[in-house]
Write a protein that binds this DNA or RNA. Structure first.
Lengths: 235, 235
DNA sequence: AAATCTATGAGGTCTAGATCACTGTCAAAC
DNA sequence: GTTTGACAGTGATCTAGACCTCATAGATTT
């Protein structure tokens, strides 16, 4: 009978604790020094066990802070254009949002270009923080030509614009063009999202089109890097 | 000037010795105990350095025998395994890449899980840096079960694996699952990509399936946040 | 009230040993 | 000649400390 190395036994022990919800997602687990005492091994050995779990993406180390059970990230399925609200509901999370600003104004140059409008067509620009289960997921700037949302209540626009448009205006959502990139959080955004400046941000820029081909929405979103994941299927 | 950890310095020292043919392919290098004396570090530290080279497939450990320079083959330019080449060409950039490692080894825990294989099924793991106009764009780790690529030349695997599989092995590529997220650059990746630690990284993980549903490829790519954009169309 | 400093505790790295399992060699036994 | 077994050398695992940087919270100062 061959005995497994201690660090693999500990790996399995810890995995079981997490699966049994003894340590929940996002929790800080005891420090390496505490755990090495608890398991009766040296810290080097315990670190080896932790490392295997970090490699699997089950744990997450943060220097100076501790070791955490990795967040199961919110995943966006890229099949079908849906809004944030449906996305959260599909994952069993409670969507909410906080509007930072909501103004009708002259479009900027990039907004004019992306939305195929001229300077004399006013746009509605909203800045929002969006939450899933009260945890900030992203900061979003959305621009919509004013004529598209004319006659709608503010609450109808901010809560679930896509659904409102389909129900009240009989406008069908068509394609969406997206570009994804990575950047670091600025001071302002970090504060909104309750993270630190310099943390990783997943930046999404999306132009959404109606089924007749007219662009109707230009959204720039900054997702917290470790709370969000895009999920896509190809072919 | 920030000092790199000793084990990374030793990693680089050893790599240089191998590249300078001081230690040739297939040679046994000095034992861990000898090397730790030579570099004036403890054996644990030296082992850490060796480990990084084993991960890259540059060295190979044999219990009871020693550590050997792995059978690394010639590096070559490659194109288009994951569409990188087309992406670069579309932007008018010259694509190129550098293979860091190319090695058959035991799968890691996450590779076993993603590729649906067991520990006794060896995998081919390739690490490479991809460039656009000589500027490093991403670092990529691709893992393929060894039996899938058995009998193929290295050039057939690295240049266009998909095409080779369809032609020589009559295997049809099916779906691919991708997740995109954002993170910060580690020390090692930062060095490869010529950026600083803590800069923004766009991370793509892809599992590619054959048409019969078997997963055959697991790729993890880290793009420099401000040198790359992912473009998608929805619906 | 805001900004700054400081103590604490976290993970990251490193040391100088130790014991174990495995391999290859080589001499002794068959 | 062939087999066996002891042995020396290797990597694998493990220990019990050490000092470092980084993050955070609380105390202090402004």
């Amino acid at each position: 009978m061959v005995g497994l190395p201690i660090y693999i036994q500990i790996h399995n022990d810890i995995k079981r604790k997490i699966e049994a919800d003894k340590w929940k997602i996002g929790d800080r687990i005891p420090s390496e020094r505490e755990l090495s005492t608890e398991f009766g091994v040296s810290r080097m050995t315990l670190r080896q066990a932790i490392q295997t779990l970090v490699d699997e993406g089950i744990l997450e180390r943060r220097v100076g802070s501790g070791t955490f059970v990795a967040n199961q990230k919110v995943q966006e399925k890229m099949s079908g254009v849906t809004g944030f609200t449906d996305l959260m509901l599909a994952q069993g999370k409670k969507p909410s949002s906080k509007t930072i600003s909501y103004h009708t104004m002259e479009p900027s140059l990039s907004e004019m270009e992306k939305l195929h409008i001229t300077q004399d067509q006013p746009v509605l620009r909203m800045e929002r923080i969006r939450y899933g289960d009260e945890v900030p997921i992203c900061f979003e700037v959305a621009t919509v030509p004013e004529n598209i949302v004319a006659g709608l209540e503010k609450s109808e626009v901010t809560s679930s614009l896509y659904r409102t448009l389909e129900q009240k205006k009989d406008l069908q959502i068509g394609k969406a063009q997206q570009t994804v990139s990575a950047m670091l959080a600025s001071e302002r955004i970090a504060e909104y999202l309750n993270i630190k400046r310099g943390e990783a941000i997943l930046r999404l820029r999306q132009i959404t089109y109606l089924q007749d081909g007219r662009p109707f929405e230009y959204v720039r979103t900054q997702y917290v890097g470790d709370r969000f994941e895009f999920y896509l299927e190809k072919e």
